[in-house]
Design a protein around this nucleic acid. Structure first.
Length: 422
DNA sequence: TCTGGGGTCCTAGGACCC
DNA sequence: TCTGGGGTCCTAGGACCC
């Protein structure tokens, strides 16, 4: 079963601010760039996912669309609560994204008197405990559960719940013949285009294609997708989240940045954040990759885009070493005279900290001091809030930082931002 | 003024080994 | 006329997901 929150970010904003409930509401990407979540009212006005905010503003004024900056602290916190509830109902669970989980339900559903009853129990509980609307889709493979979820979401007659197993075969095929092939999980824009050339236009067309033959033309992923559509499960439930293989932190700037000193602050800030994530999953990085670029949408401005990797002498999770490497890369990349729009860093070549290869000149005492220092800093920042202890090179004023002009309070994670009831 | 951020997997091709 | 067979590792690029 796939459980998916409807319009997740928008729904989070509505929990603590009931005034937002019946108005057209948008949530914008970082830097207030484009629409990443839309209420049903906004979808009805024809606003597409990813539309730049400045292109919607006239429409917004006409129809009273309200736009919020994204509040990832709130969304992550609500996501954690949702997963806690789902795990309580069904422990065989894979967290697939911030607002979706796959559940293995065949046994547990029996206690609820079937999948449909279980689905409604999930919907009621999410509504009652979190004020979050969800849809449940169920099928014999992940791809079919995804498809069922799509049906539940788009067709009111399903009432938010669709179990493909409970439909007759002819009903299943009829629904499949009505859905565009591009809606299938794993079929993106490019593949959908290529499939249409072969006259494969609907989910049913794809289901009828020959898996072996399609593998030759499209690769193994396509073969799996077709088999999954036929009810042959090829993708397993991944209950334990594997550690990340790379960690990226990057942001667009709130305004164009020209000075190397400001780029340096941004790169240190992002590296420090990436290093925290690295330590949180008990990994070390073998190399640091830095990139900077100008605004590609400004076609009449001089463009520059560059990136560079620096390998560390010894894989590390020490913010000081990672920042030093990142700054070294930035020095090599920087060209004066450009208006930079974005910088970012990647930690790559990640491996488990507990099995690290030491070098001939390794200094055990230094290494242990480094670990203790990083642990202490992480704990201070966790207990007393981000940036309680910060890095000098990351700057203080940070005039380059991203725009977020209408962010809601962090209702669930800050004492000072708790909602107040009058 | 103005267009996000963070990931994964697969494949082809090159370089190299014996 | 005419130049093997079997393998690994790495990287870049393309596709996808939310």
């Amino acid at each position: 079963m796939l459980v998916d929150v409807n319009n997740f970010y928008v729904s989070c904003e509505r929990i603590f601010n009931p005034r937002l409930r019946d108005v057209p509401l948008l949530v914008l990407s970082n830097n207030d760039g484009c629409a990443v979540a839309r209420s049903n009212e906004v979808k009805a006005l024809g606003v597409k996912m990813g539309t730049p905010w400045f292109k919607i503003q006239d429409l917004a004024r006409q129809h009273g669309i309200i736009a919020y900056s994204s509040n990832y602290t709130l969304y992550a916190s609500m996501s954690d609560r949702a997963v806690t509830i789902l795990r309580d109902i069904c422990p065989d669970l894979e967290v697939y994204s911030i607002d979706e989980s796959f559940l293995r339900v065949e046994k547990i559903a029996l206690h609820y008197g079937g999948i449909e009853a279980m689905s409604h129990a999930i919907r009621d509980r999410m509504q009652r405990d979190l004020s979050l609307p969800v849809c449940c889709g169920c099928g014999p493979s992940k791809t079919l559960a995804k498809l069922a979820n799509h049906l539940a979401k788009k067709n009111p007659e399903f009432n938010g719940v669709c179990d493909l197993n409970s439909l007759s075969k002819s009903e299943r095929l009829r629904w499949m013949s009505r859905i565009d092939v591009g809606e299938v999980w794993g079929i993106g824009r490019r593949l959908a285009e290529r499939l249409r050339v072969l006259n494969i236009r609907t989910v049913l067309d794809l289901r009828r294609a020959d898996p072996k033959q399609m593998r030759a033309g499209f690769g193994v992923v396509m073969e799996r997708t077709i088999n999954e559509l036929r009810g042959v499960s090829c993708l397993s439930l991944e209950e334990v989240e594997p550690p990340r293989k790379q960690i990226i932190v990057s942001r667009s700037f709130g305004r164009p940045v020209k000075a190397l000193s400001e780029l340096r602050e941004s790169v240190s800030t992002y590296t420090a954040r990436a290093a925290e994530k690295l330590r949180a999953q008990a990994s070390i990085a073998a190399a640091v990759h830095v990139f900077i670029h100008t605004n590609p949408f400004k076609e009449n401005m001089p463009q520059y885009s560059a990136s560079k990797s620096i390998a560390l002498a010894n894989p590390s999770d020490d913010t000081r070493e990672l920042i030093a490497a990142a700054q070294h890369a930035l020095t090599a990349l920087y060209r004066p005279g450009y208006a930079y729009k974005k910088s970012g860093i990647m930690l790559i070549g990640l491996s488990d900290k507990s099995i690290q290869q030491r070098s001939l000149f390794d200094d055990e005492s230094q290494r242990s001091r480094s670990s203790q220092l990083m642990t202490a800093i992480d704990r201070l920042n966790r207990d007393y809030g981000r940036d309680t202890v910060t890095w000098g090179s990351a700057g203080i004023a940070r005039h380059w930082s991203m725009r977020a002009e209408n962010r809601s309070p962090r209702y669930t994670t800050r004492w000072s931002e708790l909602p107040i009831v009058h």
